[in-house]
Amino acid sequence: MIKLENVSKVFKGDVVALREAECEIGKGEFVFLVGPSGSGKSTMIRLLNKQEEPSSGRIFVAGKDIGELNSWKVPYLRRNIGCVFQDYKLLTNKTVYENVAFALEVIGRPRHVIKTQVPAILELVGLSKKHKNYPDELSGGEQQRVSIARAFVNRPLILLADEPTGNLDPATSVGIMRLLDRINRTGTTVVMATHDRSIVDTMRRRVIELDRGSIIRDQARGVYE
């Protein structure tokens, strides 16, 4: 599903964010990216949906070299990749329902599809009763559920999560992880960057560890360190 071939990313001033990264992630896998801040986890995630371009190397998503993708095709790549962030990135002037519906609306889905898909996904994340609330009326955990609903409503092949539990307490984080696990079991490939030792140690999934831009460990059913 995802393949990195000798991928490096160097920012201005010779800051090496990723150094000759090699890895392959299969369909339906659940992968943790771990490592200290600045080790290249976020860069790797941003490279996968073409928010950043690699300085060298090739990245394949669903069998396609995304470096050769025309810029007008990038939106279609992103429709297959859901994204979840530490800061949720919800639109504060829209309700829960509208936030999720927005993701379908802007990729031109017809209204009847939106009307059936959005309630279904809100049911899945457990927010049916709060669909009329605005983001600032929700707890952090609930906001992250909305953001996951938005990322998953279009049933993408891949879900990228950049420290989704970074702003949440441990109990709430467990709930979020259950949700991501459920999404993973529908066949969606999940790549999650995290600092959360207890989550990684409890879930026992594949762990890719980064340090100063290099992959230093790639372990099936791994632990944080």
């Binding site: 939106p75 927005f102 990729i107």
Partner: peptide, 9 residues
């Protein structure tokens, strides 16, 4: 957000 969910330019 529009760009992240794949809205065309």
């Amino acid at each position: 957000v529009m760009k992240l969910v794949g809205a065309t330019n």
